[in-house]
């Protein structure tokens, strides 16, 4: 069972906030992971700034690997089977494109801009996540 890690989580969160600030200051863009990823997946339309998006995703993937060289691999426990994870991933991909954002774009960047859409979206996906875990862990599993 994961332990309560307020300081590490606060520090990590501040780095995530700093990443959003850096992307806005340098490139003038929202650090929304789902938006950045979905843009990279579009092949039909011309995407003029594919370069910074690819670099962003490369940094996102490489940084935890680099950190693992120093600190050891981060704790990472995935409970779901590959089939469950594929279902979860499809819902996350579909839902974030439909709703124009995810935890980063709405939950951090949007709330930081006091966007009513992002405040509402964050409330809804938090509630849906909590409800889903409740159903899976406490109703279906009987625990």
């Amino acid at each position: 069972m994961p332990e309560f890690t307020p300081l590490a989580s606060l520090a990590g969160g501040m780095l995530i906030g700093l990443a959003a600030v850096v992307l806005m200051l340098l490139n003038g863009r929202i650090a929304g992971i789902s938006g950045i990823t979905a843009s990279l997946l579009s092949v039909s339309r011309a995407v003029p700034d594919r370069g910074w998006r690819l670099a962003f995703v490369a940094g996102l993937i490489l940084a935890p690997l680099g950190l693992a060289q120093v600190e050891g691999a981060p704790a990472m426990t995935v409970a779901g089977s590959p089939a469950i994870m594929a279902l979860a991933g499809f819902l996350v991909g579909f839902g974030t494109v439909l709703g124009n954002g995810c935890t980063s774009g709405h939950g951090i960047c949007g709330i930081a801009r006091l966007s009513p859409r992002s405040v509402a979206a964050t409330g809804v996906f938090m509630a849906a996540g909590i409800a889903t875990v409740f159903v899976v862990r406490h109703l279906l599993a009987g625990g």
């Binding site: 992971i33 789902s34 990823t37 996102l60 995935v78 409970a79 779901g80 469950i84 994870m85 279902l87 979860a88 991933g89 499809f90 819902l91 996350v92 991909g93 579909f94 839902g95 974030t96 494109v97 439909l98 709703g99 124009n100 995810c102 935890t103 980063s104 709405h106 859409r117 509402a120 979206a121 964050t122 809804v124 996906f125 938090m126 509630a127 849906a128 996540g129 909590i130 409800a131 889903t132 875990v133 899976v136």
Partner: peptide
């Protein structure tokens, strides 16, 4: 669209424990 998308995303998030980042 916004609210339905956020709800589907939240269900997937709760099911798998991953959001996109």
């Amino acid at each position: 669209r916004l609210l339905a998308g956020a709800a589907l995303f939240g269900i997937g998030w709760g099911l798998g424990g991953y959001c996109p980042g």
